[in-house]
Design a protein around this nucleic acid. Structure first.
Length: 400
RNA sequence: GCGGAUAUAGCUCAGUUGGUUAGAGCGUCGGGUUGUGGUUCCGAAGGUCGAGGGUUCAAUUCCCUUUAUUCGCC
């Protein structure tokens, strides 16, 4: 059994977009696809059946969180992530590399897409991560205990968890780091760590032959510098990864261009996963420029806070206009929430701080983004991508 | 009937010996959220300080009257 197979089915003329299938030991993913995030082996507020109900083809969990609790050895003893969380389809795990940045530099606006923020980095005393060229020292946000992550440990954790697709341990820099730091980060950490991740990964796949083989994606960094993005893509592209993660600080206004720089250099016959992206305009840009899969917490997070997606943009269900609106929130939506409840009821659940609010909002938002990417996939297959993009985005941002 | 207490934002209450545009929590309204540090962050609106009169340069604050609520006693 191979860890991963990738087939390309359709291509978009004049662009890097394609449709295809990623096949893993736990099933197949039709791409492009949106992969919901279940950080701690659950998509908050949803059962696996509900997650499947929104059309999720896979789920992405986080090595850092599961290492701290309940521990990757425990998940291994449970039979792996799929068995542990009762999820039958493919799984991904992030390496913990994101936490190097979020716990270390700690910008409140984590990705800081536009690079223009008033947010200050964490003061030294508030930092929970310290980086060196061998790895990263973390202070657990749960109990304050110290842990030292290396590429090898990240891979051991990700193999213990047992996701089908894992990611190399990398350093996510921000747009606030200067060019020299970006160069140093690639040369001293992200590149050598990718090599070490791959070596340890291959060793673990042999050692753990009783488990289904796992795939490893290298993660491209380089912030918004074309030379660094291309250089990193070439470096990682020459290695024996099963696919690639497109990561790091991405400037919102030219996210498509940055993705193109990477995908022009990366091997065409391997899948590319866009880390942490889910806004509709970003998704269109990234797919057009060759991204195959996406993950992001945003649909779930904003949903739990009462912001729901519609064809005409994102709106807060807590707004007074929904108080006595007895129609479905989105009459065009085929999700369970919109098929079964009114806006007035959703509004009431949020105002009352009821748990079901989280469930219904998460179902709607995840379904919305999953379906959007499904529709984009169909539009590439039938050649209507540009028309679909134009009309969708015109509606979606018509109010802004 | 007598005595006491209380009246400040929609609600529950602060308001320091009288001193610039009277505050908080909750609620209301609007916005934010992009490889998650589980119920979050930001902002806004809203008050003739029960009413009337008086003292004072100045009253939510002191005095008088009155109204309402509430407690206790006949």
């Amino acid at each position: 059994m191979k860890a991963l197979e990738f087939e390309i089915h359709h291509r978009l003329d004049g662009a890097l977009a394609r449709t295809g299938t990623i096949t893993t030991p736990h099933g197949t993913i039709e791409t492009p696809a949106f992969i919901p995030v279940g950080t701690k082996a659950t998509l908050k507020a949803l059962t696996p059946e509900q997650l499947e109900g929104v059309g999720a083809q896979a789920v992405l969990a986080n090595a850092y969180h599961l290492y701290l609790r309940p521990g990757h050895e425990l998940i291994d003893r449970a039979g792996g992530l799929n068995a542990f969380m009762n999820w039958k389809k493919p799984t991904f795990t992030d390496s913990g590399g994101f936490q190097v940045m979020s716990l270390g530099v700690g910008f409140k606006k984590v990705i800081d897409m536009d690079g223009q923020t008033d947010e200050k980095p964490l003061a030294k005393k508030d930092k929970l991560a310290w980086i060196d060229n061998n790895g990263v020292r973390f202070k657990s946000h749960l109990d304050g205990s110290y842990h030292y992550f290396t590429p090898e440990l990240s891979m051991q954790i990700q193999h213990g968890i047992g996701a089908d697709i894992t990611f190399a341990f990398d350093e996510l820099t921000t747009l606030h780091h200067d060019y020299d730091y970006q160069v140093e980060s690639l040369d001293e950490r992200t590149h050598p760590w990718a090599v070490r991740s791959l070596v340890e990964h291959q060793r673990l796949n042999e050692e753990r032959s009783h488990r289904p083989p796992q795939a490893l994606f290298g993660v491209v960094q380089g912030a918004d510098h074309e030379d660094l993005r291309r250089k990193c893509s070439q470096f990682l592209g020459a290695m024996d990864f099963d696919g690639y993660g497109l990561g790091g600080a991405l400037r919102k206004e030219n996210i498509g261009e940055i993705v193109r720089w990477m995908n022009e250099e990366l091997p065409e016959d391997k899948p590319r996963h866009m880390l942490g992206i889910s806004e509709p305009d970003d998704i269109f840009e990234c797919i057009e420029n060759g991204a195959d899969t996406f993950d992001c917490v945003s649909p779930a997070r904003v949903g739990r806070n009462g912001a729901l997606y519609t064809r005409f943009g994102r709106v807060n269900i807590t707004r007074a206009q929904y108080k006595d609106d007895f129609t479905p929130f989105d009459s065009e939506c085929d999700c369970y929430s919109c098929q079964s409840y009114t806006s007035a009821y959703l509004h009431h659940l949020f105002k009352s701080d009821e748990l079901l609010a989280n469930t219904l909002a998460t179902i709607h938002n995840e379904r919305f983004i999953v379906k959007l990417v499904d529709d984009i996939r169909a539009s590439i297959a039938d050649g209507s991508f540009y028309d679909f993009k134009q009309s969708f985005l015109a509606d979606y941002y018509s109010k802004k």
